[in-house]
Write a protein that binds this DNA or RNA. Sequence first.
DNA 1: TGATATGTTATCTT
DNA 2: CAAGATAACATATC
Length: 286
Amino acid sequence: MPELPEVETIRRQLEKAILNKKIVKVKVLSQKQFPQNPKLVEGEKIIGVERRAKILIFRLEHRKNLIAHLKLSGQFIWTPKAEKKTKLKKLIPTIGEFLPSKSTRVILTIGKGKLFFNEMRKFGWIKLLSDEELEKELARYGIEPFKTDFSLANFEKVLQASKKAIKQVLLDQEKIAGIGNIYANESLYLSKIHPATPSNKLNKKQIESLKNSLIKVLKLGLKFGGASDEYYLHPDTTRGTYQNHFLIYGKSGEKCKNCSAVIKRISLGGRGTYFCPGCQGLANRK
DNA sequence: TGATATGTTATCTT
DNA sequence: CAAGATAACATATC
């Protein structure tokens, strides 16, 4: 699932590909994924490629912005040439051999190339917002992990304000932005905190440790170009490799590398949650 | 085939 | 009322 490191990896690659180029044409194949009139962005130059939380922001001229959420299975694939039907160099799992594929929802012709927005499950979207609307939209999101507002004091304040399970708080985008299931599970494991621990019951030491673990796993995710566990791909169709370095996510039934206990899977807030009963056991709950 | 998984949001419940 | 719990969304996989 595209979380902060995955979206940031896409952002970095797309910036190289499309910055300062003009959107020539927009073809909408599924209106749910692009509800507005595509003509409104044709002819606009892309003057910035940014990210906030798990959202990609394409800044356009004339105070307009395209923003995109990849949700569960979104992909942005860039092909430098704008052909009617692009044959890929090799068969790519989740796409096939050609673009557009059956999950392509929007095609943006940008400069001489094409940007394909694929989203198998049709949850993701691209929408056009004015600068004012964008500002309002982004204000809903919580602390950005790599920005200065992710201080120990701010993090502590957020965690102490909720009785919910710490893992659910980490996933709450209005509290902390960009954390998804993978990075929530991995960071709690590193800090030896049980995912069901009430957020406001964490002590100062645990909060500090969790903050450091979050930064650590997000950086690790970035280093490996994100986790291509399922649908996530880079714009050039290569895969991220962070999934090969998971310590806890998806490892139920396997032995913990630290204490050899068997890793368990539970459901928290309807989300798959993995933890080590040894390292993150109830004995560690304060 | 029907249960399950997934991130977010809308809606229901306490 | 607000916080928390749950259903809904679309689709593929098992």
